[in-house]
Design a protein around this nucleic acid. Sequence first.
DNA 1: ACATTTGATATGTAGAACATATAAACATTA
DNA 2: TAATGTTTATATGTTCTACATATCAAATGT
Lengths: 213, 213
Amino acid sequence: MADIVEVKLIEFLKKKAFQPGDALPKELEMAEALGVSRNVVREGLSRLKMLGLIESRKKRGMVFVHPDILGSLEKVLDPIIMDDTTLKDIFELRLVLEMGLSELLYLKKTEKDIIELERIAKTQDTGDNTFRIKQEIAFHGKLYEMTGNETLKRFQIMLLPIFGYVTAMEEQPIQGKTNHLDLVEILKGGTKEDFSKAMLEHLAPHFNRLKDF
Amino acid sequence: MADIVEVKLIEFLKKKAFQPGDALPKELEMAEALGVSRNVVREGLSRLKMLGLIESRKKRGMVFVHPDILGSLEKVLDPIIMDDTTLKDIFELRLVLEMGLSELLYLKKTEKDIIELERIAKTQDTGDNTFRIKQEIAFHGKLYEMTGNETLKRFQIMLLPIFGYVTAMEEQPIQGKTNHLDLVEILKGGTKEDFSKAMLEHLAPHFNRLKDF
DNA sequence: ACATTTGATATGTAGAACATATAAACATTA
DNA sequence: TAATGTTTATATGTTCTACATATCAAATGT
């Protein structure tokens, strides 16, 4: 019945429209008000703490903070403990994000970004597989970074293990016929539509993989 | 220091490669093994329970289950308690998803889906604002549903309040020059590229909104 | 052979006690 | 007076004990 307390606490926070830094009632008061032991209240508070909704400071009490919405997701987004269906869903989600990025990229890209992106793309692709993956991560990570959307970027980083897990299943990595340098060239002078098309070609091997699931 | 216990428990789960249904050691054993009181262990377990990593049954003990990765996100994804930057990020994320959907849609769409989608789109648009929003939700919700990706669909549902909150800021709703029926028509006979373009036009008012933040 | 009772066991809840850190009030000194 | 050091009250952190409750499993009775 700590679940109930948890829900009530969250409702309480939303209802009162707390500002960051505002202090919550003390544990004993809550326990009394809800008719449960301090122990149960602490369990509820502990969960909110993990969700990043509150922080506790001795003597001050619990204070409300703006939640770190991705914090909790981070803890469970691990391919080892996920079921296969969700794994596929997440893999697909990543591809959808990647495809949808074009519009934002063309809104926000700067000269400086593109130069940096080109530098990353030009890094020699040795035969080493772990290096290739690193380079892949760097390039696509930079794309997300260019959007200036921190949440999006963090989300992408969290998705990497999933991506790695799925792609690691195959021995011989299949390259799309459009590579990173092609993408950079389009970003320099081409249209959004060209970029979308090129990105699709670049991701084609992954889209094909969806059918195997 | 329940944080430490939480991390250790999660590590433990990942390390042991638990199968769903497997029982964890009992609370007292863990407490002893970790050198803390049963209370602290319970706090940690309580958090895992909230993350959907474990379920507890009396006498049986705690059993591992495949996590509901979006469950925890659901609890904190509320515009009231989010900071403005994150709010904008999430709003943007939704647009990115919507734009990236085309590829999946063209992979998975069926005759039946399109008929249903057309039915939704044809529902008369009365002047009523709340109705218009409902209809908007129904249409775009159906698009996500058509992908067959349950995680994606759930995610989209969670994003709705954010979308509603942001769009509610303006009094007079601005319609894009491409409407739902146009999109359906393209889905019937047009190409992916046409669809992407049309979707962009449809979402144009929202993309414009990004500049105001 | 089947239904019932009983007991053992692991989680759930409660309450008291003490530890610890710290904000605020108070006292001390230059 | 202002700066600094000390005390004190207080809210969270941790531990321990006791009991409630549900349920699996074995013993018992029909």
